[in-house]
């Protein structure tokens, strides 16, 4: 039931931006894009709240989220090379889309409690959340995807993450919003995104097999139910 409501809200927000500076108290795209993002996040969290979640799932999600968050720290010296994206994608791949989203968005929010919250927080929550969720969907569509397929997926997400983050920067601080300024913004982030993508693949190739094996073992433990 609330899905159409959220969809409608997002569409209304999108349409209100077409007629520039006129509808909805003359807000610009910077504010509108943030509102759309928050509405999307609220909907995804609402989905998690409604679903049945056992205490084990909650504890696993929290641990994996914290692990991904910690992963952002020791590599902070190299621009954008960090294992967080890799941990989130692998968690989503093994535990499913909903858990993947929660691990990703929790990692972004929690790491920022320590690295500093900023206007980037909801966008990171969204980008990483979708990275985890999409990995869960990937598993459903291609259950037997091999190392090569997963590497490509990790590589793509290096760029997608940066591209989602760029939307925020572009809509809030650049005017006019046209192809030229869009391309210039995206060109400015090209090397950062490339580092991210290559880092993701490297982490997957080095740690991937071991991580997936361990996570699968624990997914089996999830299926054990406690008798009251």
């Amino acid at each position: 039931m609330p899905f159409p409501v959220f969809l409608l809200l997002i569409i209304v927000l999108l349409l209100s931006g077409i007629k520039q500076n006129n509808l909805l108290a003359k807000q610009g795209w910077g504010l509108l894009s943030a509102e759309i993002m928050v509405a999307g996040l609220a909907f995804l969290y609402w989905g998690f709240e409604q679903g049945k979640t056992s205490s084990r799932e909650i504890a696993f999600i929290a641990v994996l989220g914290a692990l991904a968050a910690v992963g952002r720290i020791p590599f902070a010296m190299l621009p954008n090379v960090q294992p967080a994206t890799f941990i989130i994608i692998v968690s989503g791949f093994v535990f499913g889309p909903r858990a993947g989203f929660m691990v990703g968005s929790t990692a972004a929010l929690v790491s920022n409690f320590f690295l500093g919250q900023g206007p980037w927080t909801p966008w990171q929550m969204f980008a990483w959340g979708i990275a985890g969720a999409s990995a869960g969907v990937l598993k459903i569509i291609f259950p037997n995807i091999g190392t090569a397929g997963m590497s490509v997926f990790h590589f793509i997400w290096g760029y997608l993450f940066g591209w989602i983050m760029n939307i925020w920067f572009w809509t809030a601080f650049i005017y006019p919003l046209n192809w030229q300024s869009f391309l210039a913004t995206y060109a400015a982030s090209f090397w950062f995104d490339t580092f991210h993508a290559v880092g993701n693949v490297a982490f997957y190739l080095i740690f991937g097999a071991g991580f997936v094996k361990i996570l699968k073992r624990f997914r089996k433990k999830l299926e054990i139910s406690i008798l009251d």
Binding site: Y45, W46, F48, E49, T53, I58, A59, I61, A62, V63, G65, A66, L67, A69, V70, I73, P74, M102, T106, A107, L109, V110, S111, F113, F114
Partner: peptide, 23 residues
């Protein structure tokens, strides 16, 4: 508003420093 999500976040916030120490 959202008990389960808040629980996940506060658990992860608690675990974060513990995990950094664990390494």
């Amino acid at each position: 508003l959202a008990q389960k999500s808040a629980l996940v976040i506060s658990l992860a916030t608690r675990l974060f420093p513990a995990m950094a120490r664990n390494i």
